[in-house]
Design a binder for these strands. Sequence first.
DNA 1: CTGGTTGCAAAACGTTTGCAACTCT
DNA 2: AGAGTTGCAAACGTTTTGCAACCAG
Lengths: 157, 157
Amino acid sequence: MQSPTGETSSELLETVAAMLRAKGERMTAPRRAVLTALAQTSGHLTMEEVVAAVDQIAPQVHRTSVYRTLAALCDLGVVQHVHLGHGATAYHLTGAGGPHLHAQCRECGRIMDLPTDLLTEVARRMGELHGFELDATHVALSGLCLDCARQVNPHTH
Amino acid sequence: MQSPTGETSSELLETVAAMLRAKGERMTAPRRAVLTALAQTSGHLTMEEVVAAVDQIAPQVHRTSVYRTLAALCDLGVVQHVHLGHGATAYHLTGAGGPHLHAQCRECGRIMDLPTDLLTEVARRMGELHGFELDATHVALSGLCLDCARQVNPHTH
DNA sequence: CTGGTTGCAAAACGTTTGCAACTCT
DNA sequence: AGAGTTGCAAACGTTTTGCAACCAG
């Protein structure tokens, strides 16, 4: 798996360790486990999925530490969260797969990645008209994926 | 389905009462209070704000009933919810201000309404390229409003 | 050694549910 | 009268916190 700077998983651990030390913080087993869990997938993990993945890697790591670790890594800027509908949040390594937008199907919950340029024109217009600086990656767009749209409204598809 | 757009508050209550009865359901004091609370503002109320507003109107109405009432009114289609970042949800009357998009400032939390046509082109492209049926009104876009952008990054504004 | 970090238990938080009493139709 | 609705209390699931033990630097 690639990190923002194109690193292998162990290079990622080393990079983040250095970033932590630079702030007087430490690289620990739980933090390694969370980073490894996130590096294992190119996608987006919910809290529950991170906990499950961490449990595979280092079963002794407590749920609480996953919460605290994700918060710490978000502060560091190494991890980002994306808000999905209905209160759910997904986490992913910053730069995993490059910057991209997210769209989630409100029926099946599936998340699809989209190129950022899909909203650059909209962002420009919002800046121009309303002075609003759009951060399009921070929230997942909502809608129906092809499969679910077929089921909800079979004849129109 | 009827839209309450353009009605006075008491016409709204009557319209919704009729819709409820048509489904074998009932217009009650808690439901009137929630509808009145939502009709009092042209904007979007979080759960907590609805509870507070209802408390002004009918103090004896229990928190639980506000939850159940909002769910019932959403089912009816009279009320819609919008997902904001960080797990928050806002509610508004379906017809209030006509259909519109939402954008929320991640610093001050302020919500601005935007015309739906801002995303129609994006919606068309997503449908064409990915078969994704975008529901742009269901989630608030995230970013920084002009005032907060100035504070975060004063020299660039 | 020393302070950041952990595991645990308990608290906090927002939401949902079971149920008897109540009320709209 | 009867089904839908309510208020309350208790249950729920998730996240946060206080604290003593621990371990990375």
